[in-house]
Structure formats: structure tokens, C-alpha cells
């Protein structure tokens, strides 16, 4: 039989080296350092500092995962600057990581970005807020729909509201059409949302 007893096998020995460093030349050691830093408050700043310079995707992922595991307001705050990064992979990694952190610590960090001067940052913030299970997300997103001057930011908020699926957002969406009467995509998006929110509930109940 070709199956050998694995216990007598040849798995490489686990080498208990000294603490790994985030600045090591070997990506495997940097990943190990990131794994070891997960959940440690004092490691947030070094992790974020390394993340800004890190170009190995596997190490980036380990650092982001460690910051999510830490899950503190400081860890969330350390990720906020990456929302403005020109590096799409890093920016998306930061957004995805913030989505996975506790909503209660992320929302206070992200909500102010809904009024950031950069409309791209406001778009990312709206997308992010839409994913946070937090009681403020509905009023925050309807506030964007009601007040933001940039149509693409409003549409990001509409998309998030549709995903949340709460019909209470409908009045704000109706007012958005009035704010951008000449934008066909606004009309289309709101019409889609209106249709979705006013589906006959009996049909969904299988009646």
C-alpha cells in the first residue's frame, strides 16, 4: 500500500526562531511577524507603517488580517488613510478589512469621510458604511442621497441602500430624482429601487 503512516512522515520540523520582524527581507518572516502581531494594540502602528511600504501581496494580506483581528478604533483608524491610496489593491484591501471589523469601532472613523473634500473618498465611504451593521447607516446614507452635490457619490449611496433593502429609504431616493432630473442613470437606479422596495410581499411569502 502506498499510503504511509503520516506520523512517521517527514513534515519539515517547526523552527522556533526568534521573533520575526516586519522588516525582514523574507516575505515568509514578515507574514509570521504579522500573524504574531494580531490582536496586539502596540503593534497597530508598526503594522500600518509596514503596510504603506509593503509590495508583497501575501504580506499585505497578513498585515490586514492582523489589523482586523485587533479590531480596535486605533486599528480602524490606521486603515482610513489607505482609502485615498492610488494603489487599487491596497485601497480595496483596506475597505474589505474595515468591513470585517466591528461596526461600532469603524463607523466613527468612516462617517466623517462622507463629507470629505474628495468625491472618490466619499464614494468609498458610502460603500463602506453600507456594509456596516450599525443603526446609523440608514440615516447616514439617506443624508448623502439628500445632500451630496456629486451624483456619483449619491449613486454609491443608492446602491448601498438597495443592498440594505430597507423601504424607509424610498422617500429620500424619490427626492434624489428631483435633485438630478436630467440624469438618466439616477432615474434608472431609483426606479429599480422603487420596484424592489414595493414588490408585493405576499408574492415573496409564497402565497
Amino acid at each position: 500500500m502506498a499510503l504511509v503512516k503520516a506520523k512517521k512522515g517527514t513534515l519539515p520540523p517547526v523552527v522556533e526562531a526568534e521573533a520575526a520582524s516586519l522588516e525582514d527581507a523574507d516575505p515568509a518572516q514578515r507574514r509570521r511577524a504579522a500573524h504574531e502581531a494580531a490582536g496586539r494594540a502596540e503593534a497597530v502602528a508598526p503594522l500600518a507603517g509596514r503596510l504603506a511600504r509593503e509590495d508583497d501581496a501575501s504580506v499585505r494580506e497578513a498585515i490586514l488580517t492582523a489589523l482586523v483581528r485587533t479590531g480596535s478604533a486605533e486599528a480602524a483608524g490606521a486603515l482610513i488613510p489607505f482609502l485615498a491610496s492610488e494603489d487599487v489593491g491596497l485601497r480595496n484591501g483596506a475597505i474589505e478589512s474595515l468591513q470585517q471589523m466591528p461596526a461600532a469601532v469603524v463607523m466613527p472613523e468612516v462617517a466623517p469621510l462622507l463629507t470629505d473634500g474628495d468625491s472618490d473618498v466619499r464614494i468609498f465611504a458610502a460603500q463602506l458604511v453600507g456594509h456596516l451593521p450599525h443603526p446609523d447607516r440608514l440615516p447616514l446614507l439617506t443624508g448623502v442621497v439628500e445632500r451630496d452635490p456629486h451624483v456619483n457619490v449619491c449613486l454609491a449611496a443608492v446602491e448601498a441602500l438597495v443592498e440594505i433593502g430597507h423601504p424607509n429609504a424610498l422617500p429620500s431616493l424619490e427626492r434624489l430624482v428631483a435633485r438630478f432630473p436630467d440624469d438618466p442613470f439616477v432615474g434608472f437606479s431609483v426606479e429599480s429601487a422603487r420596484h424592489r422596495f414595493t414588490e408585493d410581499p405576499e408574492r415573496d411569502l409564497g402565497a
Binding site: L132, P133, E163, G165, E199
Partner: peptide, 20 residues
Amino acid sequence: TAVGAESFRDYMNLLRFQAS
């Protein structure tokens, strides 16, 4: 609890209307 739904009605709205 995982999605932060505050009531059964909220959760049913999510199940019914979530686009994805």
C-alpha cells in the same frame, strides 16, 4: 445578530430585498 438586524421585520426586509 451577525448582520445587526434590530427586529425580525428588518431581517426579513434584508432577505427579501438584498440585491445580491
